[in-house]
Computed example of a mutant assay.
Amino acid sequence: MSSPRTTHWAALEQILCYLKGAPGRGILYHNHGHSRIECFSDADWAGSKIDRRSTTGYCVFVGGNLVSWKSKKQNVVSRSSAESEYRAMAQSTCELIWIHQLLSEIGLDTSLPMKLWCDNQVAVHIASNPVLHERTKHIEVDCHFIHEKIQQNLISTNHVKTGELLADFFTKALSSPRIDYICNKMGMINIYARS
């Protein structure tokens, strides 16, 4: 807002065109017969051409229904893709813990551990390996945080193929078929679509 450019205006026009073309889109919630909490986490390493900061994106499902999502530029520049993914995993873990506590306070039982899905095998390995390597000391706080939640059996980290990672939606520009695929997986429907 402080220094808008023509590229910002073009992005706004694209968003408005999307919204105009999909007035009946929404999320439909179903009873999937379980109360598992799952999160898909992603980051685009050095995606910003201005300051080379990465963007964190995640989406959280409770009982198979999308309940929370976020896309935000990271506060610091990451020195590797694993570091940017790991920062995204730490942020996602905070959201998982918050949702679990909220559901517990209102009396809903959820199964533990909550699943945290990521497409970066190095980040998943760092999370599951209790030995901190010298190369990861600059992300040591995030490492300790995630290790602690894994040891408490609150979360489990899992690898997912990039093609199945739903959080891609929040970090990268995608093709129209890919957007449709992810929207379908998230439970989005168009009430005006023909049956």
Rank of each mutant, 00 (worst) to 15 (best):
L96Q: 02
H100E: 13
A193F: 06
L96A: 04
N129S: 12
I99P: 02
A22F: 13
Q152I: 06
M186T: 07
C39G: 12
S3W: 11
A22G: 11
G64K: 09
H133C: 12
E95I: 05
I27D: 02
D119G: 03
N190Y: 01
M186D: 00
V141E: 01
N158L: 15
Y29F: 14
G107D: 07
V67S: 04
Y18T: 05
P113F: 10
K185R: 13
C143W: 04
C59Y: 03
G26A: 11
D180M: 13
V160Y: 00
D180H: 14
Q91Y: 07
V124P: 04
Q101N: 15
N184E: 14
G163T: 12
K161E: 10
T162H: 11
H34K: 08
R52V: 09
D42E: 11
R79F: 04
E140Y: 09
Q74V: 00
Q14G: 13
I99W: 01
S35T: 15
N158H: 15
M188S: 03
I50E: 15
C183S: 14
E95S: 09
K172A: 09
Q152H: 12
L154R: 09
T56F: 01
G47K: 02
T6W: 06
T157G: 06
M186F: 04
T93Y: 04
D142V: 03
I27A: 06
W98S: 07
F169E: 01
L16N: 08
L66W: 09
L165G: 05
E148Q: 14
V160D: 04
I150H: 07
Q101W: 10
L174G: 08
V67K: 06
S156H: 08
R194K: 10
Y192Q: 11
K72H: 07
T157H: 02
N129G: 11
R178N: 06
K70R: 15
N65S: 05
